[in-house]
Design a protein around this nucleic acid. Structure first.
Lengths: 218, 218
DNA sequence: GTCTATATGGGGATAGAC
DNA sequence: GTCTATCCCCATATAGAC
């Protein structure tokens, strides 16, 4: 799943790699083009030559990391639907298809685990999910298909509830990966140091119970 | 729970009110002191006179909204502990004490609902929970007491799991309130327009199931 | 307490030589 | 494609008159 592979030396690629690290660490708005190009060892003017503007550079960085994760989600759901050929897929499996591509992206080495967590946090919190045009429809398709899968898996769920419980689940993951360190500080270390994989397992348990719960509907 | 009450006309108060709205809408870093003082109808230099620096103004704004919410959480938990006098408190009640003070703060009119949601998102996503010194210990106490209450309510939970499941629950709330609009867009309106109160009810159901779930521990 | 004026520094973008 | 130099804008913070 390496995205840049053999082109790591080109100016364009050097800018992307430096930019995403700085964006993750300190935020999209605060990091200046001068810092990015300085860290990349290229000229200030190169960003505008290769990307057109700072905003388009941000779009390129975001797209580069989000699109593969979402495509992997869809591909895993495809596999499950074939495997269960029309029968409802267990909630736990759907959740795995939804959450584990993040782990895979981290494992791919395209971005360090620490950095990717921070990157996710910035993306959600600072830019409020304002996605690059062109990636929006991919997200909409993904959300629709996963909500539908949840609905088939839990018969009493209506479409609205399925959408919201999916949203809740994504919230657990996003917030946990992004702000796990905060819990460690608040609890003075008593929350321990579980690996991301362990944590995702617990998130899946938590969300499965919440999704399968037979309660009021919206 | 009005915080400013009769002082809304003072320069200091006018700055606070303008600042928090702009911060919520567009982010702490991007908003300039010129915008804030312009909107407040006071002079640029007034911020530095009354607060010392932009960073200290941010601290004041954050403290002003977070401290009352957390104190209300603790006060509601106090009440529950008295009411159940030593016996375990039902998970649903603990969750209400944890989540509903946000609703109350919105209802207090201190900040509009729309704005407060955005404000929460900025706080978590842009500042990564970096709390003003002086509010940290309040948060630590709150987290510790709520985790302990969850642990008493669900006997098979160890301390670590209680802390994490509390964290998961907070994640659901934060992410849902902050990014509910995104789900509406992604689902092309099919997620409907539930009120914040309805939504919080559903969040409580979802989290209760997740917290009471008897599964693997960390 | 509040104002104007200014010091000092940094930002994004571009023109034009190489 | 890459560089230098520069345009023009805006930021925070402060000094000092009122």
């Amino acid at each position: 799943m390496k995205i840049l592979t053999e082109e790591r030396h080109t100016t364009r690629a050097r800018i992307l790699v430096s930019a995403e690290a700085l964006f993750a660490e300190r935020g999209f708005e605060v990091v200046s083009l001068r810092e990015i190009t300085g860290a990349a060892g290229v000229n200030v003017a190169a960003v505008n030559y290769h990307f057109g503007s700072k905003e388009k550079l941000i779009d390129a960085v975001v797209t580069r990391h989000l699109v593969p994760v979402n495509e992997e989600r869809l591909s895993q759901l495809d596999k499950l639907e074939k495997q269960f050929s029309g029968a409802p897929i267990p909630v736990e499996e759907i959740l795995k298809a939804f959450l584990s591509p993040v782990l895979q992206h981290i494992a791919s080495g395209e971005m360090s685990e620490d950095l990717f967590k921070k990157f996710m946090g910035r993306l959600i919190g600072e830019r409020g999910y304002s996605l690059p045009v062109g990636t929006c429809s991919l997200f909409a398709v993904m959300a629709g298909r996963f909500a539908a899968a949840f609905q088939r898996a839990v018969p009493q769920l209506d479409e609205k509830s399925a959408l919201w419980r999916m949203h809740f689940s994504f919230g657990v993951m996003a917030h946990t990966l992004t702000n796990g360190e905060t819990l460690r500080q608040l609890s003075d270390g008593r929350s321990g140091n579980p690996s991301t994989e362990t944590l995702l397992g617990n998130i899946i348990d938590f969300c499965r119970a919440g999704i399968e719960f037979e309660g009021r509907e919206l």
